[in-house]
Amino acid sequence: MADPATLLPLLLLAPALVVVAGLAAAGGAVTSGDRATAPVVETLRLLTKQRRRTPADDPLLARIGLTVLPVAAVLALAVVPVGLPGTGAPVDLEVGVVWFNAMEVLAWFAVWTAGWGPNAVTALVGGYRTLPLGLAYELPHMLAIITPAIAAGSLDPARISAAQHGLWYAVWMPVAFLLYLVSTAAMAFWGPFAAPLGRDLAGGAGAEHAGLDRLLLHAGRWMLLVAAAAMAVPLFLGGGAPPPITGPDPFSGPAWSWFAIKLLVVLALLLGLRRVMPVLRMERFATLAWVVLIPLAVAQALVVTVVVLV
């Protein structure tokens, strides 16, 4: 650990995630008909804006939650093989996918406390919506993560990524890939799954937060979305390796360049999801997850397991 060469990626992790999350937010702004500079202006606006409190609130708990959100996103990204030298990940962890999922789950806790803290009904109901959302989409998400792990026989994202040189898992288990994308949007309460920050609740969990508090919530959400999208690359798209169909690498650039291209594709798919679907009510997203997605996820895991065993 004392070697500066191994520490550098860790130190750069948070700033890099902030930059990519900013780019993703710019993409999101353009998709919704706004200017690409909107996230920069918004960030400056929130930085110059006063913070705010409400009567009988619990600012400590709310701010713990608001801080945990971006931190959890950075910690989740830490185990993703982003194409660095060596195994590819800033931190090499044998049970990386479980760590990744645990960090995502911490983010729900963060949003819930952020909504609970202000002691106001819109924020409380917004924070509360995180729970059914998280619980409903954690199962398909976990199954979608575990399915490539079963095929590769490892919980290490680097090994999973290395196991698909012949055939991307996105091709061999398309249902799991699709479920991963949908549940990722839900994990980051983004797009059709933005009910916890819903406009019907005046911004939901964020309704009463201003200034830096609000920035942490919204930036943390984009960071979480990017971190979760990044994990799709090693799990389903062969990580930093060039596409198997091209034969020898046409670019022969560093591994992270392929990783970056694939990440952009995944982010574009997630941004597109916002275009095709309005925000879903609790009743709707719960039905979708429990009645459609979870049985599909179980079936996909079953098929992959049987193929691997036989």
Binding site: Q50, R52, R53, T54, P55, P118, A120, V121, T122, A202, A207, E208
Partner: peptide, 9 residues
Amino acid sequence: RVEWARSAD
């Protein structure tokens, strides 16, 4: 100054 108050209610 920002006073104690809620927004929605």
